[in-house]
Amino acid sequence: MKEMFYNRPKPLHIKGRVYKFGDNINTDIIYPGKYLSITTEREEMARHCFETVYPEFLKIAEPGDIIVAGRNFGCGSSREQAATCLKYFGISAVVAESFARIFYRNAINLGLTVVIAPGISKKLEHNDIIEVDLKMGIIISKKNREELKTIRLPSSVLEILSAGGLVPYLRKKLGVEQ
């Protein structure tokens, strides 16, 4: 594979700055429908994250940031671009109170780390620095060293995520890896 989109194994420990959103952030907000004709150019997708409703994201957010959100993140359309654009922008993880199911699956399949952490959105602010430890299932806030519990992924699903997504996972499983 030419690019490093999938085949980077996922680190199980992520540190980054918080970029915060509220509840019910739908995939039309994350990736506007008018750009759905971009189906394969992933760098281009990354230039349109949140563009219509939260245009400031593109100015303020930086690669490595961790999105922290409320309930039902990624609801609505199944467009995979919503997960791809975040991954390609360089978002290192999305942590939310809960996720809508298709976005959640898309993220795992693309190797974008998603973490469910009930109660998280009340505890963290924009620009907080946090550490996400997937193995231990905890999030540590640097501000007050507070530890928050996360809901751990089933092991079979974590295997897909830590392989870097479904493509490298299947390449290995089906024996097509060179």
């Binding site: 199944s78 995979e80 299947l170």
Partner: peptide, 19 residues
């Protein structure tokens, strides 16, 4: 409903995981 990459998995194996 599922996403595109997941569908590529289905096209490859005919299977999908569900909770």
């Amino acid at each position: 409903g599922i996403g595109g990459t997941e569908m590529a998995g289905v096209w490859s194996t005919g299977e999908i995981w569900f909770k």
